[in-house]
Design a protein around this nucleic acid. Structure first.
Ligand code: FES
Ligand code: FES
Lengths: 155, 155
DNA sequence: ATCAAACAAGACTAAAAAGTCTTTTTAATA
DNA sequence: TATTAAAAAGACTTTTTAGTCTTGTTTGAT
């Protein structure tokens, strides 16, 4: 008999952030096709709860990552010329803030080289590597293989 | 004006797991000095809520990571010969389960090479690197610099 | 034997994250 | 200008994570 889980599902990004990234990729992919898309469609295509997705999209609009057009025929879109400018880092920061980038892995009040926790020296390079990847990965990179059907946003 | 955080504090480990790791390190450090320690002392030294710390220690006992001695003069300890055998991976798995090790970074039901999400190929090596580090880092490694006062468990 | 100092167990509460619902605003179009 | 299809806004609910409290059990020392 295995002990059941004790604490939270622990991943890099919050669930909210996961939805946000998936939604942004889907919108970009449609935009690259000249199409605008609405909440219902997005929620269906990325398998996310519809009203919650609405909330998240609002936040992405405020953070200037996606554009929204209100009214009949409206929806969300991203101008193609932004694809290379928008990085994964931007989405993560907009939703999860910068804890992932700064916080001590063991929960000390500060992560610092001067007063490091016992895991700091092994953790820091991993985090730096993750940061670099998030900084270097653009929406253009993310939709490339998605458009060709080689990566997935659900299942 | 900056937008306030929208979602959870996102780090690798749950807060519970952070406490667990800090507590284990502290206990090991005392044990390496031949000393046994109680909940109150541990909570004080790692700056964690006392009753919650008790809960977490219980879990670590069940997972066979630390030993507990009940009754007057009791407390927690870890036999020195275990220091190199106990890995960070063991603590993380005992508390957070294996989501960190398996879960898709974008929240798809499965993380797989066959039906990868758009971030999979960039994410996987980072995660593998983290896993390797957790697998390779033993309690002995963690307490080394802590015993010499070069790393910290609070502030 | 009794007492006191420890951990164990489990019910309970609080806070944060995730998710829903209702109302308002916007804008194209008939 | 009325209708309608969309997003925006904000109050609300649920679930999960974090944390507390009370009661019981164990055991060394008096
Ligand atoms: S001090 Fe803990 S990760 Fe830097
Ligand atoms: S499928 Fe998403 S990280 Fe592997």
């Amino acid at each position: 008999m295995e002990l059941p889980n004790f604490a939270q599902i622990s991943t890099m990004f919050s669930k909210t952030c996961e939805y946000a990234i998936r939604a942004t990729i889907y919108i970009a992919s449609e935009s690259s096709d000249g199409k605008r898309c609405g909440i219902k469609e997005i929620a269906r295509k990325i398998e996310s709860p519809e009203p919650f997705t609405g909330k998240i999209l609002q936040r992405l609009v405020k953070a200037n990552i996606i554009h929204s057009i209100k009214g009949n025929g409206g929806g969300f879109e991203i101008p193609q010329e932004e694809f290379t400018k928008i990085k994964m880092e931007d989405i993560v920061r907009a939703i999860d803030g910068d804890d992932l980038f700064n916080r001590c892995s063991l929960g000390l009040h500060e992560c610092s080289d001067d007063q490091p926790c016992p895991f700091h020296h092994k953790y820091k390079p991993i985090r730096e590597n993750l940061k670099k990847t998030l900084r270097d990965t653009s929406l253009a990179d993310l939709i490339l293989k998605f458009n060709s059907g080689d990566t997935y946003l659900k299942l």
